[in-house]
Design a protein around this nucleic acid. Structure first.
Length: 501
RNA sequence: GGGCUCGUAGCUCAGUCAGGCAGAGCGGUGGGCUCUUAACCCAUUCGCCAAGGGUUCAAAUCCCUUCGAGCCCGCCA
């Protein structure tokens, strides 16, 4: 059976074989989470598919650093009320260490992008506007103010207020971009006259002193940056939404064909609903990279068609990782990263190994014993970190086991035969019994005691873990402190006066 | 009110655009590895393709209706 053509390749099929610019844009108003990441990963998959098809393509990312701070988000201190309305690039950094508010959220995001092997050309809105790239588009918009207003009213059925302007000025006095009104503009001088609610008024060059409103900004951006393909969330895709208005503004005002749209759905975090920066329901990309390799995180998104919503359950990350390791096909190809390290060791097995061993060399021994002696050192080290982080954050109880410090209560439920077996086992373990011999010993003892190996193993796990199953018994027991093991087996077997303190 | 996406095995989903025997992985079950114990290998179970109607030689797929889920339409992807 042929593999169905991957959605990213279908996009490459659908667009003309000319030079393409794929644009992404995320506003750094809060933590940039894995929901946001869908935008860039989707774009990157399309980018790679285009490159593979021999099409000249470029990937860009625009940070909307001129967007105003909308409100004091729940994760901000009350001090931020005085900054509401200012562009994010002019708001102080929450931690004090970054250049500004936008950079605070941008920095970890860009670092994560690097790990995901996504390397767009990065633009910051305040830099683009600051160096005057948008001045011609701004003047065009101001000159066509009425036509733009009509388009927005017709398409979105919204009423545009009388004083509306497609361009918003940053007040020189109070620094806000949301409180100014434009009265006049001078196309030749490239200046605008404005008045602010704070009482200030004046005339400033459009260059570096403001920004087009969202719907106009987006459309003009296509023209200014030559965007031909762009993924965006379904909120923009709704009828009468910003893509619809953008399409008409782009064609009618800027004489530019709008980009090929890739509409994508949201990522839902199991049990928490859709992710949103403003409500604080977030898992950052960096959080995810703590518990899974970057190529698997890409795979989570690339294997699903953009229009499908993704239910993401962090408790099942190991299944996803194992699936990725086994899977073949286009989605896997498109998910690979530079630092991709092939791993032959199932992640589920590593989860066990990590919990048995106390350090990396111990883990290595466990892996050797289970026949993975040819494993790649760097790959193991990286994945062990993922496992450890996963165990302490998202792992379900069923994946976790712990050697019980005290004799588990469940031992009471063992049969007399099982107890006797444990006692016999203890008496047979002498000195330095090797792991493999220890494992064989379990079978020998169960045979002598007349109980099934099954029951014998259950008895061992019950006495050590308080559960009926666990990692391979012989190797597991061999990794424990010998005195502890003997005391425990005797105690569980009821043959000794040793009592747990 | 307007609109979008989705509904296929216990779970996560392919397959729907272009109609042609209902699929994969995981899980479950059974077996193997002269050691069944979260490794590995092999085998195997599982479906009113949400429901109803229509078109067709033929429908998971196209059309209509209904139900259910999630969401968008106030600059959150």
């Amino acid at each position: 059976m042929d593999e169905p053509r991957h959605w990213a390749d279908v996009i490459a099929d659908n667009v003309a074989a000319k030079k393409h610019t794929i644009a992404t844009g995320i506003t750094p108003s809060g933590e940039i989470h894995i929901g946001n990441m869908r935008e860039v990963v989707t774009a990157d998959a399309a980018y790679r598919a285009l490159c593979d098809a021999g099409i000249d393509a470029e990937l860009i990312y625009i940070a909307d650093t001129l967007d105003p701070l909308r409100k004091v988000y729940p994760f901000l201190s009350d001090d931020y009320s005085e900054h509401v309305g200012k562009p994010l690039s002019a708001v102080p950094c929450p931690c004090g260490a970054c250049a500004n508010y936008a950079e605070h959220y941008l920095t970890p995001f860009l670092e994560s992008l690097e790990r995901l092997d996504i390397s767009p050309t990065i633009y910051r809105a305040h830099e683009l506007y600051g160096r005057g790239d948008f001045v011609p588009a701004t003047m065009t918009a101001l000159a066509n103010r009425d036509r733009i207003a009509t388009i927005i009213e017709e398409v979105s059925h919204r009423e545009i207020p009388a004083g509306w302007s497609p361009f918003n000025v940053i007040c020189e006095e109070c620094g806000r971009i949301t409180t100014t009104t434009i009265s006049e503009f001078d196309e030749n001088a490239g200046t605008v006259d404005y008045a602010c609610e704070c009482g200030h008024s004046g005339t400033v060059p459009a260059k570096g002193n403001g920004k087009l409103t969202w719907r106009v900004d987006w459309a003009s951006r296509w023209r200014v940056l030559g965007v031909t393909i762009e993924p965006f969330g379904k909120d923009h895709a709704t009828r009468g939404g910003s893509y619809d208005t953008g399409t008409r503004i782009s064609r009618e005002i800027y004489d530019y064909e709008p980009p090929y749209p890739i509409v994508y759905e949201w990522i839902h975090l199991k049990g928490k609903g859709a992710m949103s920066s403003s409500t604080g329901v977030t898992v950052t990309i960096a959080d995810m990279l703590q518990v899974m390799p970057p190529e698997v995180l890409r795979y989570l998104i690339i294997r699903a068609k953009p229009e499908k919503h993704i239910d993401f359950d962090p408790a099942r990350i190991i299944d996803l990782i194992d699936e990725f390791d086994r899977a073949t096909g286009r989605a896997v190809e498109l998910s690979r990263t530079k630092e991709y390290l092939k791993s032959d060791i199932p992640f589920t097995h590593l989860v066990t190994a990590v919990q048995i061993a106390s350090d990396l060399s111990g883990i290595r021994e466990v892996l050797d014993r289970s026949g993975y002696d040819g494993h790649d050192e760097a790959s193991v080290r990286r994945r062990v970190l993922n496992v450890e982080n996963w165990l302490t954050s998202y792992a379900p109880d069923s994946a976790i086991f712990e050697v019980q410090e005290m004799l588990p209560d469940a031992v009471k439920n063992l049969s007399d035969e099982q107890r006797a077996g444990l006692g016999t086992l203890a008496s047979r373990i002498q000195g330095g019994v090797a792991a493999k011999d220890l494992h064989d010993l379990v079978y020998a003892v169960s045979e002598e005691s007349g109980i099934s190996a099954n029951k014998m193993f259950q008895a061992i796990y019950t006495s050590l873990l308080g559960k009926k199953s666990g990692p391979r018994a012989g190797y597991f027991m061999a990794s424990l402190d010998r005195e502890f093991l003997l005391d425990r087996l005797r105690a569980a077997g009821g043959e000794s006066a040793v009592v747990d303190e």
